[in-house]
């Protein structure tokens, strides 16, 4: 009788040790990228890297960008992989403060715009792509009514645009947050008054990008009632590339003066047992071949200036000359206060 608990404990312990043994060993020939669920490069893109270096690449996906950085921040110095892909401007300061990255200065920085490189003076992470969050509008809606589409933030608060705008909540949506931060960068202390005017002008706030763009927006398959939405600068080419039947012109367009730039970064995870391989991989991720794969697989702009863009991007994607740039440190310091204030102003 007495023996039972012992036997039970043994029954519990033995499989555990076996399981632990099965997963504990890091394979020296493999570099692991920890990425968010939207990291979807072309199949076989890493074959060239393997041919060149003899190292295989494995991708571990772990939720959205916020979750990936949050989880990495819980165990700095003891990473789950060797390289992290996907900390964006709003997450960068936090990732650096949590100490999850090991600095590395890639030779490829020379091929990137200096102002983007300047966003990480300590070189803790390396810029890999940029994406702009902008006001998108339904061209046909405005054309059929003979009215001007919005061009600026100010237009959105104009009584002509009453009940036309839908935005995803910055509390639960990454483009929603970028749009809010863009208005704060644009208006400074006047941002609260601006949102008050948006609210008085019939602004609709929904939970996420999916509800805003595919349910409420009139220019997408959801055929909703509102012709102005917060989305990406690359949404119009997606509407062309994935239209059925094929179309010659984009049904939607971007108000370029409202674009806020988000930079996405990759970094070497501190504590990796393969720092050399990780550096090689960062160079590959910022190399011409991988960068050229980004637009059509992930709908972002490559960070390198010397990469040719696909035709659809050249024709329909907005490339604002001077987008609003966010200060990662200011965002990190004020995010909670801003979001609380925004919630009081807009949701209550």
């Amino acid at each position: 009788m007495r023996a039972f608990p012992v036997r039970s404990a043994a029954a519990l312990a033995i499989p555990l040790v076996l399981l632990a043994g099965a997963c504990g060993s890091g394979d020296p020939g493999t570099i692991t990228i920890v990425a968010h669920d939207s990291f979807t490069p072309s199949e076989g893109i890493f074959d060239a890297f393997t041919d060149r270096t003899g190292l295989r690449v494995e991708v571990v996906r772990a939720g959205d960008a916020g979750q990936v950085v949050t989880a990495a921040g819980l165990t700095p110095g003891n990473p789950v992989g060797d390289v992290l892909w996907g900390a964006d401007t709003t997450l960068l300061s936090r990732a650096i403060d949590d100490g999850i990255f090991e600095p590395y200065e890639s030779p490829n920085l020379a091929a990137m715009p200096p102002d983007v490189v300047a966003t990480v003076p300590g070189r803790e992470a390396t810029p890999v792509d940029t994406g702009e969050v902008c006001i998108n509008y339904d061209i046909g809606w405005f054309a059929s009514r003979g009215t001007e589409p919005p061009a600026t933030f100010e237009d959105l608060a104009d009584p002509r645009m009453r009940d036309l705008l839908v935005v995803p909540s910055p509390l639960t949506s990454s483009p929603g947050l970028a749009f809010l931060l863009g208005t704060i960068a644009e208006f400074g202390d006047g941002w609260e008054a601006y949102w008050q005017r948006l609210r008085d002008n019939g602004l609709l706030v929904v939970d996420g990008w999916t509800e805003a763009y595919t349910v409420e927006f009139s220019g997408s398959s959801g055929a909703g009632p509102r012709p102005i939405v917060v989305s990406y600068a690359t949404s119009p080419p997606a509407e062309v590339l994935f239209a059925d039947p094929p179309v010659d012109e984009a049904p939607t367009a971007v108000a370029t003066a409202t674009c806020t730039q988000q930079v996405e970064y990759a970094g070497i995870l501190r504590g990796t047992d393969q720092p050399d391989g990780a550096r090689l991989l960062i160079d590959f991720l910022t190399g011409p071949e991988f960068q050229a794969d980004l637009p059509l697989t992930q709908f972002v702009h490559p960070v390198r200036r010397d990469v040719a863009l696909p035709d659809a991007f050249v024709r329909w994607a907005a490339r604002p000359a001077d987008p609003i740039r966010l200060d990662a440190d200011a965002v990190s310091a004020n995010r909670s206060a801003w979001l609380e204030r925004w919630t009081d102003l807009v949701l209550r």
Binding site: D37, T40, V59, T214
Partner: peptide, 27 residues
């Protein structure tokens, strides 16, 4: 979703990602 997944992605993850990108065919 926050636990690292090395293996293939499950249907719900695929659906979620497809729903969060623009384009009629993608939707």
């Amino acid at each position: 979703s926050i636990l690292g997944r090395r293996s293939g992605e499950t249907l719900p993850v695929l659906i979620q990602r497809s729903l969060s990108r623009p384009g009629d065919i993608v939707q």
